[in-house]
């Protein structure tokens, strides 16, 4: 078998394994919890009439959690991989470079000024502000860091954007009109899949899917960017379109995700890094497996949080940050060594 054929079959195998992993994680999320259910009970819960207890647990509590985990994880994995391809830098991740915190800032602004609603179009206000925040951050980042792709520049710009967004969020908390609003914002900021409904899933899904679609259209361009902007252009890649699609796609998807579940950090950093060797470091081929891997990681992390004794109080975003921050440090050192 020739090398490309081996990679092709390997890629299919990789995607298949990750898909199985996601499915297993999703099923475990449905089965396990404060009340452990059997497979038959889960199936009954999925089909039973609404007033049934099983239906309540499976359809109202666990299913939205699974679907949100799936969407958010896929968005974070995919966006991380896309950012890393676009910036040609393994440390570019929506959380690290400040896109997630600007999305959170946008959402906080909407909540703080009482623009958030839950009925009809008003429900879109928080995600819209989140997406706008993400877009602003991405554009700033791109303007500053795109010419000089050095690790240091990217991380420093990320620090600046994160610090600024953090300061404004703190200001909102500081001036918050009542302690309930403050604790609401604070808990939401920590990042969690708990207590979300199918309405939240319905709100996120179109943006996640459309954003993801735009990113997947960039696969070929990201592949060519391996050789730098100029050669990519001489290979027939429309760089403006590539950058527009990647930036707009990640802003939509990450902005909407963060405004619904809060910031769940480092998924986009860890997952593409682990998958990269399996796809021969190809930025285009990294996209789909990273989405699947992101979904699997978020679902398993959420499962761990739920099953841990006393874990009901633990926030998913805190757990991913605890895992991700040391990993980021390791990656930073490794990258600096490699790029020297």
């Amino acid at each position: 078998m020739s090398l490309p054929a081996r990679i092709r079959s390997g890629l299919t195998g990789l995607n298949l394994s990750l898909l199985i992993l996601v499915t297993v994680a999703g099923f475990l999320e449905l089965l396990l919890g404060p009340v452990d259910l059997t497979v038959a009970e889960v199936l009954e819960g999925l089909t039973a009439p609404a007033e049934n207890d099983l239906a309540l647990i499976v359809r109202e509590i666990r299913l939205p959690r699974v679907l949100l985990g799936l969407l958010v994880g896929a968005v974070l994995g995919l966006s991380g991989a896309a950012f890393q391809g676009l910036f040609k830098n393994p440390l570019a991740e929506p959380g690290v470079v400040g896109v997630s915190s600007c999305a959170a800032l946008g959402a906080v602004i909407a909540i703080y000024f009482g623009l958030a609603g839950s009925v009809g179009l008003a429900g879109l206000v928080v995600p819209a502000f989140g997406m706008a925040g993400a877009l602003v951050a991405t554009v700033i980042l791109f303007a500053v860091a795109s010419r000089d792709a050095s690790v240091l520049t990217l991380v420093l710009v990320g620090i600046a954007i994160n610090a600024f967004a953090g300061a404004l969020i703190s200001l909102a908390l500081n001036l918050s009109p009542n302690p309930f609003a403050m604790s609401d914002i604070l808990l939401w900021l920590l990042g969690s899949l708990a207590n979300r409904s199918m309405a939240d899933v319905a709100l996120l899904a179109p943006f996640a899917i459309f954003g993801g679609f735009l990113i997947l259209l960039s696969a070929r361009g990201l592949e060519a960017l391996t050789l730098g902007d100029q050669v990519a252009k001489t290979l027939g890649i429309d760089l403006k379109r590539l950058k527009l699609f990647t930036i707009f796609g990640t802003s939509l998807a990450v902005g909407a995700s963060v405004s619904i579940t809060g910031a769940i950090g480092f998924v986009g950093l860890i997952v593409p890094h682990m998958i990269r060797p399996f796809v021969g470091y190809s930025p285009g081929r990294l996209l789909v497996p990273s989405a699947l891997g992101g979904a699997a990681l978020v679902l398993f992390a959420d499962l761990a949080v739920r099953l841990m004794p006393g874990g009901q109080q633990l926030r998913l975003g805190v757990v991913t940050a605890l895992l991700g921050a040391p990993f980021f440090l390791y990656l930073l050192m490794a990258t600096r060594r490699m790029m020297r």
């Binding site: 090398l3 060519a224 391996t226 470091y281 930025p283």
Partner: peptide, 14 residues
Amino acid sequence: EVHWPITVERLVSL
């Protein structure tokens, strides 16, 4: 420029 540690075969196939 070559930004990722891709194989020579992959490079040429670009």
